[in-house]
Nucleic acid binder design. Structure first.
Lengths: 205, 205
DNA sequence: ACCTTTGTTGACAAAATTGTCAAACAGAAT
DNA sequence: ATTCTGTTTGACAATTTTGTCAACAAAGGT
């Protein structure tokens, strides 16, 4: 047995997540992961029959965790504005710590030929927490607190403004020809800026 | 020679772009590309010594094209608001037609160990068209036409609001449990919505 | 008609990646 | 100490992906 059995299985999963979601190495090989985890590649097969199994598990868990996280905040009892602020703050940090999670999920979805043609998957509909939040959004739009659009688009804006700049960091550092430090500064500015933008604070000085 | 020589080399590149940027198959093999192009895989090696060569070319050309496109609009002589509107419209269409281009670029940048440690690459700085546009943004912020932030963050917002929802389409269709058709509708709404949002139109009915 | 050039192809070789197996190992229980 | 169990490992096999080569085909010039 290992000197200190923290659970090799868990180490492998954690490492895989790190490699995929943090380092963004979507093509990582089993050897890459084994090396990064400091274990023998065969061990990886001992715990996960195949690479696919590992990827699938990591994928599913991450996706579940992500949606749970979102639902938890958006389904909470906080007043609207606080809720949005909290969401921005928490989700911003989450994405910062796993910038490539979303890219990974997208990529997975495109490679697999769509497990089921979702014959009756269409039966399920928008989860309750989200439906609730969408309603809140509508109400706030009526009140004039926020700009009018589809509630879904309000949410999509939120996600976009938070995630995209983090995901595309390398591209924009390159494009703007800026130092990573400067970009960091810009990112820090964002949390507050997004709130202002969303709540339509007029720039009348 | 081929019956009708439209340039096999070009066909291969076009197909590779299609597979990578449109279908989002970032792991596509040379065989996949050859099949999609309707050519023998060996031909691919005839025109591009290796897979890496092909990928590199496609990558570089796409990246160049993308930045040229952006610079062309943002560096044009249009008045600010029109310029922004045009940018939204054109860039939106561009991203729609090649949703995975940006993911692809990001992925490439992460796999390669950063060609040069850019010892004196730091010498170059923000391209002139962009610098110009950033100035315009500052001026508009002074005027109060748009919200105050770092000009860079204004640009990043623009990119985010346009690109992200298109890139993440499969994920959000899944998350919202919505039909692709409905999502399409949401996307169409966006062009105008983004303009409103950017120019801070108050939602006072 | 013949040669040359360019492009295409199938067969093969090489490399990379994944998967398997049986031997070795370490601690726990007997 | 010995056996037992779950784990680790190196060696090997299978598969997948990439790269090469030499034969073949199709045009164009001579």
């Amino acid at each position: 047995m290992a000197v200190r059995d923290v659970g090799t299985e868990q180490i492998i999963k954690d490492t895989a997540r790190k490699v995929f979601f943090i380092e963004g190495k979507l093509h990582a090989t089993t050897q890459d992961i084994a090396d990064a985890a400091g274990i023998n590649r065969t061990s990886l097969h001992y715990y996960f029959r195949s690479k696919n199994d590992l990827v699938k598990q990591v994928h599913d868990e991450a996706k579940g965790e992500l949606t749970r996280k979102i639902k938890a905040i958006l389904g909470s009892e906080l007043p609207f504005r606080e809720k949005v602020e909290k969401f921005i703050s928490v989700f911003f940090d989450y994405v910062t710590n796993a910038p490539y999670l979303q890219s990974f999920l997208i990529n997975e979805m495109n490679c697999k030929p769509q497990s089921e043609p979702q014959l009756f998957a269409r039966a399920t509909s928008t989860p309750p927490e989200i439906r609730l939040f969408l309603n809140e959004i509508s109400q706030e739009m009526e009140k004039g607190t926020i700009m009018k659009t589809s509630p879904e688009n309000f949410m999509i804006n939120l996600f976009s403004l938070i995630s995209y700049p983090i995901i595309m960091k390398p591209l924009y550092i390159d494009f703007f020809e800026q130092s990573p430090e400067r970009y960091e500064k810009l990112m820090i500015e964002r949390k507050e800026m997004i709130v202002n933008m969303i709540f339509n604070v007029n720039s009348v000085n």
